[in-house]
Each structure stands twice: as structure tokens, then as C-alpha cells.
Design a protein around this nucleic acid. Structure first.
Length: 600
DNA sequence: GCCGTTTTCGGCCCGACTGTTTTCAGTCG
């Protein structure tokens, strides 16, 4: 980003004090870290700023309160110096230190960091010698030969810059978890039955089930690295090979994803798997624990730390990742939780949650039929849910205001209710369809159907589908007003984000979560891999306030139920247990929860 | 700039690969 004080507005202009958000503060810290890199500052100081940004990112509480009550320093990674800078930024909308740093370099220079193979040192040289201050400048300088002539650069370097520019234009660099999962399955399939593979696994953010993925990390244990590497580059979906060494190979795939293969020996596999799964911050914490025992941990081994002043503790045999955690006196931490948000402390204390699993789901809510914008009929959708082993399904077609989705009129909705009642009698108690609707929350927070209509349904998902660009306060009030309706069972996709394509609407989720707790409204975790909304980072806080989650497929076809897996993974990243998820309940108990607001 | 079961000073992960060098700097994860 070129500038931190972007379109959200900087306080002090026209006498209007606008709130500085957490996101803006994170952007500020990241921007400072870049500028310090360009200046050639102490690398640990640079890292301190990115660490502080990370600390804020993983903080799910009330940011303005945290700053106002001067509790910033309680976050690990934020000390007195950075806390003071954040306070200045939040209270005045400006940071003198940052403005001073910015003065030395043009704002557009930071876009060069987005190019692969280009870091602070080279960017600095390009700027100081060739006055390259943007990607467009760099492209020109590469094409007319000026880059190749610089000492320490050369023809190939210039060529690689051009390729990076081309790649950035074509692809955003990140990909949906669902797309990454499918591609990884094909890579693993490529190696199936390969005689030299003794262990294989995917690592990285894909293994941690992050909502978007950068690179696909593949790890293979073998006695014959050469044969594995040679075979990897024959994978048919490779566009070109980016790097090929003895233990590491990087390729660009035809769909724009990058995949990195690491080859290790069999006994190194658990260490490499843990190492390449990350997150980086989680690894740093593991290393710290190893050091305290006089050990050093890397991607190949847990060994004695050479410079340890005391003789190290004996090192137990390690054959699996679980052995490694055990050696560090930790309960096994599943990959989904390895985000350095307190999982190490919990693992040490034996307090890791028993996370919800796909097999815990007894039913599901929020599905569409061909009556609105779905592809399959009511009967087909019910059959698909039943085939997955679910015991109930909550139907919720769109309401009338969602013209674009052929929302149902009152009349059509009540017809559907009747059809469902008939189907239910035919199931003989072996399956059950709950009647419902995905009801639009209108601009003013009123609902698209009257209470008289809504009261005839088993449940109501209330969602925002239009007027997405309202100011934050208005949007927040709008959604809270909807939740105050006793017939609104759950709030659908609370931010409306479409990952990698549409920003979330501006809404104060802290207030939404508070209101959900107060009104006993369930919040949806929309399992569609483009949404995964509400975000996993907010669930721990929500659950502490007593908010229930519903993992909803938002299925628009029979295949849509498959998305539940992504929803469960997101719930697991949010530390949710079976009892936090309403659709893990048996049908009768779920039915009671659906009605609980109406009896108040 | 942060942090502390050895520390208020002195650590802070480090190995792999590329390209330009001719022993290494820069970048990445």
C-alpha cells in the first residue's frame, strides 16, 4: 500500500474526528517496517514492527478500548515504544515518526515489494541509481537494458523482474482454500504409487486451512531425492520451473499457483512437516521452548544446542509430529490452531479444546432450491443432505427483495412450507426439513417479510444483500435492529465478504457480536469457501460471550453441501467445540434453540 | 524494538536457491 492515511479519512480534517481502525494501524506498522528495511535498519527492529502488526491482527477484542485504556503493551510483541506510536496515531490520526520516514522515499516505491525476487536492498539500489520508483518504471528499465548493467544485477535478473511483473498482472498471488485443496490433491495423486516416496504430506497454510493460500507446499521423505525431484517437474499442470535444487524445487502451475516441493530423509520428516506447516510465529515459539531445554530445533532435527552452557536434557526419540510436541512437553496442536494465538500456552496447560469435527454435524441450515436461485429442487436438496448422513436440513430460499436471486413472495414461501410439511410426513422420522427463509435485512434494518409471515417458519436467517456501501455505523445499526426481531434466528454472512474479490461491508463486528449475545441470535459461519464469514479470528471472542455458531453451507446445489468441510475447518481455526455449534445438536434440541428467542 | 526459568543487556531461526560472482549477497519461507 502506498499510503496509510487512505480513503477512510484522517482525523483533523474539517474538524471531524474519524476513528482510526485496527486495520489502518496494522497497515501503518507494516509500512514502517518496509521503510526501515529500505533504510537498512537493524533487522530485529524491522521485525519488531511486523511482529507488532501480527499481534494486532490476532487480537480479537475491542481495539479502541485497548488503546484508550493503555493496555496495548499487554499484547506480546508490543512494547512501550510501539505502544506510544500507536497511541499517537489513534488519537491524532498522524504519526510524526512515520511521516519523517516517508519523506526519504516516494510513496509508490512500496509497490515494488509485491514483486517476487525483489527485496529492500535491490529496491533501494534501483531507486538510488536509476530513479525507479514504481513497477512501471522498473519494467521500462528492464526493457531498455539499464537494469542488466547495474553491478550485482545482470541479464537474468532483469528477465526475472519482467516475469514477476507479468505474473503479478495475471494473478493476485493468493488463492481460495478450495482451489488450493483441489490442486494439492492432484499433486499428491501424481506421486501416488511412486516407489521412492516413503512419506508425503501437504504443509504450509493449506495444511493450516487458512481461508486463502499463497503457495502449495509439498513435503516428501525419500531415499532417492533426485528421482523425486525429476518426477515432480513432469507434473502435467506445470507452467514453468522457477527453481530446482537438491532438496527444494519451485514451480509455477498453469493456474497461477506456485508450488514448492521439499525433499527430506525419512527420519527428518516430522521436523520438516512441523517446520513447513508453520505458522512462522508458531515455529518461533516451538524453537524457544527447545532452547530452554538446551536443544535446537530446525526442519531436520531436534538436537543439542552447541552453545548451550549447561548439558542439555536427553532428547527422546521422535518419529511423528506428535512425538515432537510431546518432547517439548506440549499436547499435540492440530495444524488449524498453529497461528500463535495462545495455542502453545493451552497445549502446555493441557487446555486445548476438543475441536468440532465434520462427523459431529447432525444437520445443517441455509440451503436454496430452484424456487429462488438454487439449481436443485426441494426434494433433491433434502436427498443430498440425507445422503451425507445428516438428520435434518433447514431450507432457506431468498426473500422477495432479492430480485437478482428470484426471491420468493409471501405466497410462494407459504407454498414451500406446505410442500415441506408433506415431505416430512413421508420421512417417517428418519429425516426432517425445517421450514425457513433467508430474509433480506432492508436498508433501515426492517425485515423483508412481516412478523406474521416469519412466525409461521421454524427459523429465519437474516442477511444483508443490498445497499452494501453504507457507513459503518448505519450498517451496524441496521444489522442490530434486524437481530432484535424475535423471529430472526440467525445472522447470515455477517460481513458479506467475497474472498479475493469483494471487501467486507463496513460493520463493527464487536458490536454485532455483543448484540448477538444480548438478543440470543445465532451467528452463521457461512461455509462457502468464497465467504467463510464470520471470519475464524472472531469466534473465540464470540463464544466467550455465549454466541452460538451455525455452520451453514449456503448450498445452491446438491454439491454445495460439500462446502461444510471448509466451514468446519474455519470453525476449528476459531477454537470452536461441538457444543458451540448449533447444528451439532440432535434435531429436537436444535428445534428448541431455534425457538428460544420467541419465548422471551 | 522486544523480551526475560541464565539475562535490564544481549540475544533475536537459519538453510536453500539463484545469479553474479570467483566466495557471496539477496531473497524466500
Amino acid at each position: 500500500m502506498a499510503s496509510v492515511s487512505g480513503d477512510r479519512g484522517v482525523p483533523g480534517v474539517h474538524g471531524v474526528i474519524k476513528m482510526v481502525t485496527k486495520e489502518q494501524t496494522i497497515a501503518l506498522l507494516e509500512s514502517i517496517s518496509r521503510l526501515l528495511e529500505l533504510k537498512g535498519e537493524n533487522p530485529f527492529k524491522i521485525r519488531a514492527y511486523t511482529n507488532a502488526a501480527r499481534a494486532l491482527e490476532t487480537f480479537s477484542g475491542n481495539f479502541p478500548e485497548l488503546v484508550a485504556e493503555k493496555h496495548l503493551e499487554e499484547l506480546e510483541g508490543i512494547g512501550s515504544a510501539i505502544a506510544k506510536k500507536i497511541e499517537e496515531f489513534v488519537t491524532t490520526g498522524k504519526l510524526g515518526y512515520y511521516d519523517e520516514l516517508r519523506g526519504s522515499f516516494p510513496d509508490t516505491l512500496s509497490e515494488l515489494f509485491e514483486l517476487q525476487g525483489l527485496g529492500a536492498k535491490k529496491i533501494k539500489v534501483l531507486w538510488e541509481t536509476l530513479k525507479v520508483k514504481s513497477i512501471a518504471d522498473l519494467e521500462a528499465a528492464c526493457r531498455d537494458g539499464r537494469v542488466a548493467e547495474l553491478p550485482g544485477f545482470g541479464e537474468k535478473t532483469a528477465e526475472n523482474f519482467l516475469r514477476s511483473i507479468e505474473r503479478r498482472e495475471k494473478h493476485s498471488g493468493r488463492h481460495l482454500l478450495s482451489e488450493a485443496t483441489i490442486m494439492m490433491e492432484q499433486i499428491l495423486e501424481h506421486f501416488r504409487d511412486h516407489p521412492d516416496v516413503s512419506q508425503i504430506g501437504s504443509a504450509g497454510s493449506l495444511r493450516r486451512s487458512k481461508e486463502t493460500i499463497g503457495d502449495l507446499d509439498v513435503l516428501i521423505a525419500t531415499k532417492n531425492p533426485k528421482s523425486i525431484t525429476e518426477y515432480f517437474v513432469t507434473f502435467p499442470l506445470i507452467e514453468r520451473v522457477l527453481a530446482k535444487g537438491e532438496t527444494k524445487t519451485s514451480v509455477l502451475l498453469k493456474n497461477g499457483m506456485q508450488s514448492d516441493l521439499r525433499v527430506v530423509a525419512n527420519h527428518e520428516f516430522p521436523f520438516a512437516l512441523a517446520y513447513f506447516t508453520g505458522s512462522k510465529e508458531h515455529n518461533v515459539a516451538l524453537r524457544g521452548r527447545a532452547l530452554r531445554n538446551g536443544w535446537t530445533l530446525n526442519e531436520y532435527r531436534l538436537g543439542p544446542e552447541p552453545s548451550a552452557k549447561q548439558p542439555p536434557k536427553p532428547i527422546p526419540a521422535i518419529e511423528t509430529e506428535a512425538d515432537l510436541y510431546a518432547a517439548l512437553a506440549l499436547d499435540f496442536v492440530v495444524p488449524e490452531l498453529r497461528e500463535a494465538t495462545g495455542e502453545i500456552e493451552a497445549a502446555e496447560a493441557g487446555k486445548l479444546p476438543k475441536l468440532v469435527e465434520l462427523s459431529n454435524l447432525r444437520g445443517t441450515f441455509h440451503a436454496h432450491t430452484s424456487s429462488s436461485d438454487g439449481r436443485n429442487t426441494l426434494g433433491e436438496m433434502a436427498a443430498a443432505a440425507r445422503d451425507l448422513g445428516l438428520q435434518y436440513l433447514g431450507m432457506s430460499d431468498h426473500s422477495k427483495s432479492s430480485f437478482q436471486a428470484h426471491g420468493l413472495s409471501e405466497e410462494k414461501l407459504l407454498q414451500q412450507v406446505k410442500a415441506i410439511q408433506e415431505l416430512n410426513t413421508g420421512f417417517n422420522g428418519e429425516f426432517w426439513i425445517f421450514t425457513g427463509v433467508e430474509c433480506d435485512i432492508l436498508r433501515d434494518g426492517k425485515l423483508d417479510f412481516s412478523d406474521e409471515i416469519l412466525s409461521q417458519l421454524d427459523f429465519v436467517v437474516a442477511s444483508v444483500h443490498n445497499a452494501l456501501s453504507m457507513p459503518e455505523k448505519a450498517m451496524t445499526d441496521r444489522m442490530i435492529r434486524a437481530m432484535e426481531n424475535p423471529y430472526v434466528t440467525m445472522l447470515g454472512h455477517p460481513t458479506g465478504r467475497l474472498l479475493l474479490s469483494r471487501e467486507p461491508y463496513k460493520v463493527d463486528l464487536n458490536e454485532i457480536v455483543k448484540a448477538a449475545a444480548a438478543t440470543k441470535t445465532i451467528i452463521e459461519l457461512n461455509a462457502n469457501p468464497r465467504r467463510l464469514d464470520m471470519d475464524w479470528r472472531l469466534w473465540r471472542h464470540a463464544k466467550e460471550l455465549g454466541v452460538l455458531c451455525s455452520i451453514n453451507p449456503d448450498a445452491h446445489s446438491m454439491a454445495g453441501f460439500q462446502d461444510l468441510w471448509f466451514g468446519v475447518q474455519a470453525a476449528r481455526k476459531g477454537w470452536l467445540k461441538r457444543e458451540d455449534v448449533v447444528n451439532c445438536l440432535p434435531r429436537d434440541e436444535a428445534a428448541k434453540v431455534l425457538k428460544r428467542k420467541r419465548h422471551n
